[in-house]
């Protein structure tokens, strides 16, 4: 939620209480990042090798991609080693700006002491009593992703107003709204206002779909 919030790794807490030896995968889900980095690097490598180079400039168009590839392979490998050596089970540390800033560095710069740490703890005292199998709530994320994919698929045939209202409704319901019928109204209102303000007002081209054909 917020940038500074502690992030209890729900599932792993349970495991460390139950079995003495945690699973290999526990706290190592960051391998997803390694996989993405390798995939990107391989894609760039294939693209660089098969590139149809035009012109004969001295450092050609393949020069910079090679540098980027080297960086990606190196970083992915180092990240994999780091995850293997120190899995994050459970991660209770603070990550200012999602890792943009080193908490230790800010700690030193601000001469922070116990009082400031306590002030943070206080804001987070209401840690959830329940634990979950995964840190991420995949059901909600999945619903949202489904809503987005459906939106892209129906945008051209059904037009902006209907598809945007549907997307609004799906996201609102997924994020925990309890009034589906009211939300459908809010969604329709929102999509109609955006169509009027940005389509008619500012001249953006939004698909009108079959409604536009009828009118």
């Amino acid at each position: 939620m917020s940038i500074t919030q502690h992030q209890p790794e729900a599932g792993s807490v349970k495991k460390s209480q139950g079995k003495p030896k945690p699973r290999f995968g526990a706290g190592r889900s960051e391998f997803v990042v390694v996989a993405v980095l390798y995939a990107l690097a391989v894609f760039l490598t294939i693209g660089t090798v098969t590139m149809k180079v035009q012109g004969k400039s001295a450092p050609g168009p393949q020069f910079f991609p090679i540098l980027v590839c080297v960086v990606l392979y190196l970083v992915a490998t180092l990240l994999a080693i780091q995850i293997l050596r120190s899995p994050k089970v459970p991660d209770h540390s603070i990550h200012p700006g999602h890792g943009q800033f080193s908490a230790d560095m800010l700690h030193d710069l601000g001469h922070l002491g116990k009082e400031e740490d306590a002030a943070f703890e206080e804001g987070l005292s209401a840690t959830p009593g329940k634990t979950w199998k995964t840190y991420t709530d995949w059901r909600t994320v999945g619903l949202m992703l489904g809503g987005l994919v459906a939106f892209v698929l129906i945008l051209n045939p059904l037009g902006w107003i209907i598809s945007a209202a549907t997307l609004f409704w799906v996201v609102a319901c997924a994020l925990g709204s309890r009034r589906p019928i009211f939300d459908a109204g809010v969604g329709l209102l929102f999509s109609s206002i955006t169509q009027l303000a940005f389509g008619a007002g500012l001249g953006l081209s939004l698909p009108s779909g079959f409604i536009g054909g009828i009118l």
């Binding site: 996201v171 609102a172 809010v186 939004l206």
Partner: peptide
């Protein structure tokens, strides 16, 4: 309400 705020942001991103 958070759900309206983020639903609005989602639609606006697509727009």
């Amino acid at each position: 309400p958070k759900h309206y705020l983020y639903a609005g942001i989602t639609v606006f991103s697509m727009l």
